[in-house]
Amino acid sequence: MSTEPSAYHRRVAAEKRAAILKAATGLFLASGYDSTSLARIAEAAGVSKATLFKQFPTKAALFDAIVTESWGAEDSGGPDPSAEDLRAGLTAIGHRYVELLTRPGMTALFRIVIAELPRFPELGEAQFSQGKLPYFESVSRYLAAAHVAGSAKVEDPTLAATQFLGMISNFVFWPTLLLTDWAPEPSAIERAVAEAVETMIARYRP
């Protein structure tokens, strides 16, 4: 007899996990990381404490999962962009980055980290090492590949990735931390990405 969980049980487990992550994010934002207990999260998620502890034995493990889940959209936009066509590749990456930054909950996640960072620096470490850094490194690798392919001359892919992502996030995302009504029109976002791409091409064209 197989000991593997059935498709039904896997689906139920996934639904409970999603409910836990959603409840935890909401409670962390409303009450703070320190003031929110795992028992309270279990109650808000509609699961037993045993179910929650089985998946997330500590609050830190739960927060790590929230970060990983939030940044997990990196490969959701289709195949890897071609390193031989810099304009098309950067455009695809730019729009994927916009989609990621504007996902529901992303702003809330950053607010949690910023609010709790003085007392819980490990939250910032989790956000950086498990979220932002892997995504950033994927863009850096693309720019390095473009350099090898000859579509760009990028001696420092790390710096170039910082420049490109910064141009986009400074318009699309960072204002949302201070302005609750910041919601640029799609055409404005499209232009921001296009201008970032053209700036990169002007700087790094072979």
Score class of each variant (00 low, 15 high):
S82A: 15
S82D: 14
S82K: 03
A83Y: 03
A83E: 06
A83H: 06
A83L: 04
E84M: 06
E84W: 08
E84Q: 08
E84I: 10
E84D: 13
D85S: 11
D85K: 12
L86S: 12
R87T: 15
A88L: 07
A88E: 15
A88Y: 00
G89T: 03
G89I: 05
G89M: 01
G89V: 01
G89K: 07
T91K: 02
T91H: 00
A92L: 13
A92Y: 00
A92M: 15
A92P: 07
A92Q: 15
A92H: 09
A92E: 15
I93V: 14
I93F: 05
I93D: 03
G94Y: 04
G94T: 14
G94M: 13
G94P: 13
G94N: 07
G94S: 15
H95Y: 12
H95W: 10
H95F: 14
H95M: 14
R96H: 15
R96S: 13
Y97S: 00
Y97H: 14
Y97R: 02
Y97G: 01
V98A: 04
V98G: 11
V98H: 09
V98D: 12
V98K: 08
E99F: 04
E99G: 10
E99T: 12
L100C: 07
L100P: 11
L101T: 12
L101G: 04
T102W: 01
T102S: 15
T102G: 11
T102I: 10
R103W: 07
R103Q: 15
R103A: 11
R103E: 15
R103H: 03
P104G: 03
P104C: 09
P104Y: 08
P104I: 02
G105P: 02
M106C: 05
M106Y: 11
M106F: 09
M106E: 00
M106R: 01
T107W: 02
T107V: 11
T107A: 09
T107H: 02
A108R: 02
A108V: 02
L109Q: 05
L109N: 04
L109E: 05
L109A: 02
L109V: 06
F110E: 10
F110M: 05
F110A: 13
R111E: 15
R111F: 01
I112L: 03
I112T: 02
V113I: 05
V113W: 08
V113G: 03
V113R: 06
I114Y: 09
I114A: 13
I114L: 14
A115H: 07
A115P: 01
A115Y: 02
A115W: 00
E116Q: 08
E116C: 01
E116F: 06
L117A: 14
L117W: 10
L117T: 07
P118I: 07
P118Q: 03
P118S: 10
R119K: 10
R119C: 01
R119N: 12
F120C: 09
F120Q: 14
F120Y: 12
F120V: 14
P121C: 07
P121Q: 05
P121F: 04
P121I: 14
E122D: 09
E122S: 10
L123N: 11
L123E: 05
L123R: 09
G124M: 08
G124N: 11
G124Y: 12
G124P: 11
E125W: 15
E125I: 13
E125D: 07
A126H: 07
A126V: 01
A126G: 00
A126R: 01
A126Y: 05
Q127Y: 02
Q127S: 07
Q127M: 09
Q127I: 07
